[in-house]
Write a protein that binds this DNA or RNA. Structure first.
Lengths: 137, 137
DNA sequence: TCTATCTTTAGACTTAGTCTAAGTAAATGC
DNA sequence: GCATTTACTTAGACTAAGTCTAAAGATAGA
C-alpha cells in the first residue's frame, strides 16, 4: 500500500483501504481505458481475494469523488479514464482502442449557441485509423 | 406490411419479411433513440409473437445495411438512431434523453490535423440541460 | 410439388453489473 | 484495553442486455 496513493485517496475524501489502494495503483496509472472487469482481473493478480463487488464499488466511488471518469464511447462498453481534464477521444476502428486527444488539438465553435440547450460539457469523439509511428509500436 | 417500408428494405438489399417491416415501421420513424429492448416491446404490441432474437438480428442487419445507426453515448446504453446523416448529439443530464443536433449548428476545426490519427468520422457529444420551450412541452 | 435456402422461434447461455446477508476490520467511547 | 458501532469486503444470488443454438416455418426455384 503505497503512501502516495493513500494520501491521494484521503485528499479526495476516500478512506484508503488496501483494496482501494490496489485499484487506485492500477486505474490511476493506465491510459488503456480499461473496463471494470479488466481492472478486476489486473487487481487480482496482486490481490487474489478481492471481490468483484469491491472493484465495482471502488470504481464507482472514484468516479463520484472525481478521481476518474466513466466513458461509454462504443459498443456499449463502459470504461474508465484517469484523465479528468477536458479532452477529446479517438477510437481506432480496427482495434477498438481509445486514445486521448488534447483539448487544444481541436476547436469547437458556437457551442453555447445551440437553440434550446444549455451546454454544461462537451467533447469530440473521433473515429478512424491510428497511423503507425516510425520508431515506436 | 406497408409497401413503402418493404420497398425501402429491398432498396437496401434486405428481404422484407413481416417481422422486419414491423421493426422498420417503428425504428425508422422515431427520434426517441430507443434501445433494442424498447424496440422489441413496441413491436410486440402489434406483433406479439415476435422473438427477441429476431428484433436484435433485425436491428443489427439494419445497422449493417446502413438504414440506422447504433449509438453508445452514456451509461453503457446502446440505442438506435434512424438519422444516418452527419449530426451531433445532446444528452439531457437530468432525463438521459438524447437529442439530435444539426451538423451545421457547430463547427469543429483542425480535425484532419491530429498527429498520428487518420480521422474517418467524428461527432460532438454535448451534455447539459434542455431548456423548456415556451409553447411546447 | 420437392428441395434448398432463408428466417423466425423459444429457450439456453454469456457477460456486465447490482444487491444482499454475513463476516472483517477499523474507529469511537469509556 | 475492551465493547460497541460503523464502515468495508466477501461470495454468491440475482438481473438485464445480448448472443447462440437447434428446430420449426416460410419462401423461391427447378
Amino acid at each position: 500500500m503505497r503512501p502516495d496513493e493513500a494520501a491521494l485517496l484521503e485528499k479526495h475524501g476516500i478512506k484508503p483501504s488496501a483494496q482501494r489502494v490496489a485499484v487506485a495503483e492500477f486505474v490511476l496509472h493506465t491510459d488503456a481505458h480499461p473496463s471494470a472487469d479488466e481492472v478486476w482481473s489486473r487487481v487480482r493478480e496482486r490481490f487474489p481475494m478481492v471481490s468483484r463487488a469491491t472493484v465495482y464499488n471502488t470504481l464507482n466511488l472514484f468516479v463520484e469523488k472525481g478521481l476518474i471518469r466513466q466513458l461509454t464511447l462504443t459498443g456499449g462498453r463502459v470504461v474508465f479514464d484517469p484523465n479528468v481534464e477536458k479532452h477529446h477521444h479517438f477510437i481506432d476502428e480496427e482495434t477498438g482502442r481509445i486514445y486521448d486527444v488534447p483539448w487544444e488539438a481541436l476547436r469547437v465553435s458556437r457551442v453555447d449557441d445551440i437553440d434550446g440547450f444549455e451546454v454544461h460539457a462537451y467533447q469530440v469523439v473521433l473515429r478512424g485509423k491510428k497511423r503507425s509511428r516510425r520508431r515506436r509500436t
